[in-house]
Amino acid sequence: MSEPWEDEVEGPVKKFMFVNRKSPYGTVYALESLEVVLITAAFDQDVSLVFSDDGVYQIKKGQNTDGIGMKNFSPTYRALEGYDVEKLYVDKESLEERGLTEDDLLVDVEVLSRAELADLMDDQDVVLSF
């Protein structure tokens, strides 16, 4: 039996994929994209995130922004789980090209090849690329 506060009107659920391609502090795209991710999750949509190209740096462990005077927003990625955002994918080639491995990342991810990511994208209703 559902609790009364869970008794929401069932709306349409679409598959939203967010493709994060840019490093976290060079431009504002990563930070502002994260805001869209959280709102989309609040709308109870099927949310997944892809990190590719320099976007893999967004979830690199040990970020310290003291020297650049910007807010370190990387802890937010760890909070995604609390919003039921658990489908995080990383492009294998992008990691390798940057000398990174899954152990360098601050969240649990699934590492996929470009071909596998392409299949996954094909399956989405909305793909937003930031």
Partner: peptide, 17 residues
Amino acid sequence: GLGQLVEAGIECDRLLT
């Protein structure tokens, strides 16, 4: 708010960036 963007994604046949 950003909810309007998400709503466009839900309501529209295509959301183009």
